[in-house]
Amino acid sequence: MTKNIMIVGVGGQGSLLASKLLGHLLLSEGYDVKVSEVHGMSQRGGSVVTYVRFGEKVYSPIIDKGEADFIVSFEQLEAARYVEYLKKDGRIVTNTQKIDPMPVITGAASYPEHLIEKIQTLGIAVDAMDCLSLAEKAGSSKAVNIVLMGRLSKYFDIPAEKWQKAITECVPAKFAELNQKAFLFGRGEA
């Protein structure tokens, strides 16, 4: 049975490293894996989506509505935007950070309020945390991606050590310690 993880956020927030880490980890666990990324124009501060799919045999590189086991979101509005992609008993793991999109900045639209509560009223399990503060505590605001991976790891049977090994293998050596810290903060184990 193919499992689906959707990573959503704002271009530039570091979702490519998160998907790289997941791909690396799941491959080493022996799964067939497909990861679909976004490059080019939409990377420039736009809404970005990365799909990670794994299982015995994976065909489609993308995740469609009603299919995601997890939505991992770097930002509240982006979590809300992709709710339709969630499977019936799927779960959202999200950063509580809010980043105003340009229509909100220019005043053409307003940022919806109480989004997490509204998602929860649909009966969806939402694991929300302030990843930005935890990333800063670990040493860099850029480590939000690894904080989120730490949180996501709690819902997998794969031991923490294997996630940590994958982090070491996927990030530059000089940032390894910082990211290991970010991972543990995300897991709530430090």
Partner: peptide, 20 residues
């Protein structure tokens, strides 16, 4: 048949790409 999914009844502002 496609899988069932839930919808949020909310007007969501777009997030178009912008100059950095």
């Amino acid at each position: 048949q496609i899988p069932a999914y839930r919808k949020l009844n909310e007007t969501m502002p777009n997030r178009p790409p912008v100059m950095c």
